[in-house]
Design a protein around this nucleic acid. Structure first.
Length: 569
RNA sequence: CGGGGCGUGGCGCAGCAUGGUAGCGCGCUUGCUUUGGGAGCAAGAAGCCGCUGGUUCAAAUCCAGUCGCCCCGACCA
């Protein structure tokens, strides 16, 4: 391509609308333009990157035997009523009405349509397993679109759905997709982790999120450097070694703590550290009011409480409930003498002579020990932090920020039951299909790549995703010899199948250098009058500081070598 | 939806407390000079000051409403 003929509107200054780096750079480098909140047009450069991601995905999905289809964006209400999601999905589902007053919606996902398709067409176990996928536009009327492409309302997603005749088949399909995802993100050149994710109501261990590691990520990934354990923060377990028999009892003393409610206030007032306190959190749950005990310097993890103890829902209690349950005001709750079920975090089991609330205004109790009250048991109930022990190997856990670009999930019978997707097994017996769904945020993947890799001059996209691999930059297009050579190299590289752009614009060299860096073209060939006198051109790699002067005859070979190196990384 | 902020040539902003001529930088057009890291000189084009209503002799500026966008929280690829 000739740069002068391409639509690449770059910007020197940061646009006001952008906050995060990927958003700024995508606007500045001419990858995207905003049409409306959370809705973007992809310009030629951005689209080239997007297509590269799509292509990698297609290849890896096809390799696993998944088959590409394309389902409608506009869908009838009836299917969504059938799955129960017309009601449940909430405002995020954009509903529209056609000229005949029929209710429709813009698809945020395609479980309904794909399940409907398969239940109509697949009757026999002989046609299973089946995995279908598509790369398509989704619309989710997000509460708050932000960060440009990262959380748009309209976005490109690859979604795949597997249908199996039984659990073990479904697990096999799941592992295939997991494997495909590992390949896809590795090929994209990411530093990433597959982490165990919360499975919500469905339960089980069959949900993984694929997180691109980046300091600006919205999610936190907890991982072990030793054994490979990795989990989303909301699910991350913590290793624990309990001490033996703490038998102290009855030595506690009530102390006045006037007006001190918060852990820090109480600790400071009593001259101890927050870690010597145990806080008592009162929750409303579907099984009544409960108390959760957590060491003063740590936070309770509601997701873990929910799943470990088996509540359908829980939320922190309001003031009235606390007063009724503890006979004391907010801020002074404690386990001693409470007759609601108490669940303690593991930490508490190892603590000695700690401080708790007195269930009475301005009173706390110190020198308390575990034997002074009774709990349902000790569990892993707190939010993991860097430095905590790994649940698998007791090594130290690390916390990193990540961007979720993919999610694999075993659905089980959820949709096949709701929508009656059945087949006849070998014995002629009707069975529900066992399903799985697997998503990749394709457009987000491009943004994540930039977020993970950039510098003060612009993008440094992974080689597999770059819009162009080589930029040929003649310093002065009026210099005939430069241009002749530039075109020769250009045509030569094109013939070799390299994505090459020739910056033939009549601009000052500085402008062309800056644009090349901003877009992050990995290999730059600079052709200048001075070097050319000695038969030399210059070659520079985007992420390296120094450039290399080489004989013009060697350019093609050098470029091809670099490309090979990049592809191997 | 709750909280905060912003709408002025294509982009980034000033002007607004105290109403009266719409301004700066970048970009754009033309010419000349320049040609290794966002050039210099000269001449130009381009704005319904988000929109609607009000106050006033007079509104970018004051008042009311409205629309849009961005940021912080609850949701998610």
């Amino acid at each position: 391509m000739l740069f002068s003929k391409m639509f690449i509107p770059t910007m020197k200054e940061d646009p006001k609308e952008a906050e995060v780096i990927s958003h700024k750079l995508m606007l500045r480098a001419g990858f995207i333009r905003r049409l409306s909140s959370g809705i973007y047009t992809w310009l030629p450069l951005g689209l080239r990157s997007l297509r590269k991601v799509e292509q990698i995905i297609r290849e890896e999905m096809n390799r696993k035997g998944a088959q590409e289809i394309l389902m409608p964006l506009v869908q009838p209400k009836e299917l969504w009523v059938e799955s129960g999601r017309w009601e449940k999905y909430g405002r995020e589902l954009l509903r529209i009405i056609d000229r005949n007053d029929r209710d429709l919606c813009l698809a945020p996902t395609h479980e309904e349509v794909v399940t409907d398709l398969v239940r109509r067409e697949v009757r026999s176990y002989k046609e299973l397993p089946l995995t279908l996928y598509q790369i398509q536009t989704k619309f989710r009327d997000e509460i708050r679109p932000r960060f440009g492409i990262m959380r748009g309302r309209e976005f490109t997603m690859k979604d795949a759905y597997s249908f199996d005749m039984d659990e073990s088949g479904a697990e096999h399909s799941y592992l295939d997709m997991y494997d495909a995802y590992m390949n896809i993100f590795a090929r994209c050149g990411f530093k990433f982790r597959a982490v165990e994710a919360d499975t919500g109501q469905i339960g089980g261990s069959f949900s993984h999120e694929f997180m691109v590691l980046a300091d600006t990520g919205e999610d936190v990934v907890i991982s072990c450097s030793n054994c490979g354990y990795a989990a989303n923060l909301e699910r991350a377990e913590i290793g624990f070694i309990g001490k033996e028999g703490m038998q102290k009892k009855g030595q506690y003393k009530r102390v006045e703590t006037p007006g001190k409610k918060k852990v820090d206030e109480v600790a400071a007032f009593l001259g101890v550290t927050p870690a010597t306190l145990v806080k008592t959190l009162i929750y409303n749950t579907d099984q009544g009011v409960i108390g959760v005990l957590v060491r003063g310097d740590r936070e309770a993890n509601e997701t873990k409480i929910r799943s470990l103890i088996g509540f359908d829902w829980l939320e922190l209690s309001d003031v009235e409930t606390i007063e009724k349950a503890t006979n004391g005001p907010l801020g002074f709750s404690g386990p001693i003498g409470l007759d609601i079920p108490l669940y303690a975090d593991n930490d508490v089991c190892n603590m000695e002579d700690f401080v708790v609330g007195g269930n009475e205004r301005d009173i706390h109790v110190k020198d308390v020990n575990v034997a002074d009250f009774s709990v349902k048991g000790f569990f892993d109930l707190k939010i993991a932090e860097e430095g905590d022990p790994c649940p698998r190997c007791q090594n130290v856990l690390m916390a990193k920020r990540g961007i979720e670009v993919g999610h694999v999930f075993k659905l089980g019978l959820k949709y096949s039951k709701a929508m009656n997707a059945t087949f006849l097994d070998k014995n002629g017996k009707e069975q529900f299909m066992v399903m799985g769904c697997y998503g990749i945020g394709v457009s987000r993947t491009v943004a994540a790549a930039i977020e993970q890799s950039h510098d003060e001059n612009g993008m440094i996209l992974p080689f597999a995703l770059v819009p162009f691999e080589v930029d040929i930059l003649p310093v002065n297009i009026a210099h005939e010899e430069s241009m002749v050579l530039a075109k020769e190299i250009y045509n030569n590289l094109l013939d070799k199948g390299i994505d090459v752009v020739l910056d033939d614009r009549d601009e000052r060299p500085g402008v062309k250098f800056k644009d090349c860096d901003l877009i992050g073209i990995p290999i730059r060939i600079t052709i200048g009058e001075r070097n050319l006198k000695d038969g030399n051109v210059e070659i520079k790699i985007r992420q390296e500081k120094e450039s290399l002067k080489i004989k013009k005859e060697e350019v093609i070979e050098r470029v091809l070598n670099y490309v090979e190196d990049f592809k191997r990384m």
